[in-house]
Design a protein around this nucleic acid. Structure first.
Length: 581
RNA sequence: GGGCUUGUGGCUUAGCCAGGAUAGAGCGCCGGGCUUCUAACCCGGAUGUCGAGGGUUCGAAUCCCUCCAGGCCCGCCA
């Protein structure tokens, strides 16, 4: 390790002077990737050339020689060697060093290229892609308004919001929607509770928590008096029929809960562009229109209730759309909603809980039969409590509000220990950002298909692999830049800490691209953490302010690129990039 | 019972879809490092039958089959 560093320092500097008019191409890494992939395709004649990250061995690498070996009946190492020679001779790969290491084809970017790409990383908005045409609509959270958002719901919120931020960063025109289920049975139960039970709102009680209290009490009451269920059914019929008084009762209850949601969502840094009310699809006739169209389909069955036979698509279960009392079922309204989305946007994405897997698949199948655009659905698995699964109805949940309160309290403790000299309001401000970073990161870092158990200890951990860890790396970079004052950008990367950091920074635009194509926000979480790791190592081993001349300027430029990239990555994760903490 | 899904060191987790270079991290544990650009940090060490068993392949954590365990779903709920 030491010897390699020594070797590097013997290399001539040959630094790159930076000027502001270079770097039109804002995602150099993507371009390099594409040109290598293109060259590989030409040279091998294969469509799939297996180009991927090179890890410790290279910037990019390919295992295509193995596949070619089968076709050409020659040893993969020999093929790799021949490919490397051919590729190295190409004009379009002039600045890339191609090497065959055994059967592997390794591609190394020249230092000059890394430095050029790095220069782009110092500019505001780094990682953003040019505007695209495709209009995207993203639905997330959409929790039933019968109680506050809890730690399960906000997995949806944070996943969706992060994905939305990635889409915007990737250049897509995006609208984020919240689908308000304002006419379901749960809401009818809330309304029934409001009209029959003691229901005064406690002083200081948030609307959503108030609604939950009534909802829990109403459910208890209904369990004790099953006869009252008919009253709830009646409410549902009245609201579907558009009975003005009932509609107002539903709307008031839902609004009270929704107002509470909006406060929580704002605390989480999540923003919806539009709240779409389910009942609007009854009122505007869309649901009726969809059901009318469906009634003419060969898959349609009407035996009192109206349902679809989706067995041709592999579903055994009846897909019920209208009850025998004439009222529509959620699935019917959902079809109307998705038809509307499909006709107004080019790409429709929903973030839904794993409990919606079946109904989601049925929805997609039906949309296809209808000839409408089917949504892409991201399902996330459940968050449970150590004592079992959460239930709003049973009052068994940890609300997002109490999670944020508790994490903020802990964060304030931590800030107060570390920065006792700061005035209270400033400490509170930092604590709020740290808490948000901790909560959001803790959730987004886990891939959605993993079911998790909520753990206070983990939620309150601000150390490695946490949001605050990344925020801290950013604050450190800011601290150096603040102390450095003015400097002229210049790059001459010397040692392996600098190179490793630089190589990672230039991948950022590609990470954004990957998140939106694969719909995997946790890739960004991992990227940001690795970036912080690499910066911390650089920070520890390579002094910046104590050096002089070109080395100082080069390292400062690298710090600036890191700070900027961390800041952009954190913003895309919905986490505040603090300048001090 | 049927369907979907997850199973990776004591704990949490990446990698799996598009199979290849010694399976990456973090917590915890052991040992080091703050007169030094913020120690919410860094460095080193121990810890893995990648749930089990078969199969495909030159090569399997990754693909296929069976089984086991957890989660979710299977309502004229949403």
């Amino acid at each position: 390790m030491t010897s390699r560093r020594a070797l590097f320092s013997l290399l001539p500097l040959g630094g790159l002077r930076l000027s502001s008019d270079t770097g039109r191409d804002s995602d150099m890494f993507c371009m390099l990737f594409q040109s290598i992939e293109h060259a590989l395709r030409e040279v091998t004649g294969l469509d799939e050339v297996l180009l991927g990250e090179g890890g410790e061995h290279a910037d990019l690498s390919s295992t295509v020689a193995f596949n070619l070996a089968k076709i050409k009946r020659a040893p993969p190492a020999k093929i790799a060697q021949e490919l490397a020679a051919t590729l190295a001779a190409r004009d379009d790969l002039k600045e890339i060093r191609v090497e065959a290491l055994g059967p592997y084809l390794n591609f190394h970017f020249s230092r000059a290229m890394v430095e050029r790409a790095l220069q782009q990383a110092t500019m505001p908005g780094y990682g953003s892609h040019p505007p695209r045409e495709e209009r995207v609509v993203l639905e997330h959270t959409s929790a039933n308004p019968n109680g506050p958002l809890h730690v399960g719901h906000i997995r949806n919120t944070i996943l969706g919001d992060t994905l939305g931020r990635c889409f915007r960063k990737a250049g897509y025109p995006l609208e984020v929607q919240y689908y308000v289920n304002d006419m379901g049975r749960q809401i009818a139960i809330v309304v029934w509770g409001f009209s029959t039970l003691e229901n005064t709102r406690l002083p200081g009680e948030k609307g959503d928590h108030h609604v939950a209290r009534i909802y829990i009490a109403a459910n208890r009451e209904l369990e004790a008096n099953p006869g009252c269920v008919a009253d709830v059914d009646h409410l549902m019929q009245l609201v579907e029929r558009g009975d003005p008084a009932t509609v107002r009762l539903f709307r008031d209850a839902v609004t009270e809960c929704l107002d509470g949601f909006k406060v929580t969502l704002a605390r989480l840094g999540a923003r919806h562009d539009r709240f779409v009310w389910e009942s609007d699809f009854i009122r505007n006739g869309d649901t009726e229109r969809v059901l009318g169209k469906i009634s003419h389909m060969p898959e349609c069955r009407d035996d009192g209730k109206l349902w679809l036979d989706l067995s041709s698509a592999g579903f055994e279960k009846e897909y019920v759309l209208r009850r025998s009392d004439g009222t529509s079922v959620y699935a019917a309204r959902d079809l109307a909603y998705h038809t509307w989305k499909g006709r107004n946007y080019d790409r429709v994405i929903d973030v839904l809980g794993a409990d919606h897997k079946l109904i989601g698949a049925q929805l997609i199948a039906t949309m296809r039969i209808l000839g409408e655009k089917a949504p892409e659905i991201i399902h996330f698995e459940f968050v449970s409590l150590p004592e079992g699964s959460m239930s709003t109805r049973a009052g068994k949940f940890v609300s997002a509000d109490e999670l944020l309160d508790e994490v903020t309290r802990r964060a304030l403790e931590e800030v107060t220990i570390r920065r006792p000299e700061l005035p209270e309001p400033e400490r509170q401000e930092i604590a709020r950002s740290v808490a948000l970073g901790a909560v959001r990161y803790d959730i987004v870092r886990i891939s959605p298909e993993k079911s998790t158990v909520f753990d206070w200890k983990e939620a309150l951990d601000f150390e490695r692999q946490s949001g605050p860890y990344i925020q801290y790396a950013h604050a450190r970079a800011c601290s150096i830049l603040d102390k450095a004052g003015e400097f002229e950008e210049y790059l001459a990367l010397e040692n392996e800490h600098e190179m490793a950091l630089a190589r990672h920074i230039i991948r950022f635009p590609m990470v954004i691209e990957n998140v939106v194509t694969e719909l995997k926000p946790h890739l960004l979480a991992g990227y940001a953490r690795e970036l912080a790791d690499l910066f911390n190592a650089f920070y520890h081993f390579e002094p910046v302010l104590k050096t002089e001349g070109l080395v100082r300027r080069s390292r400062l430029t690298l710090v600036k690129a890191t700070q900027n990239t961390l800041s952009e990555a954190l913003a895309t994760l919905g986490i505040d990039a603090l300048r001090t903490m």
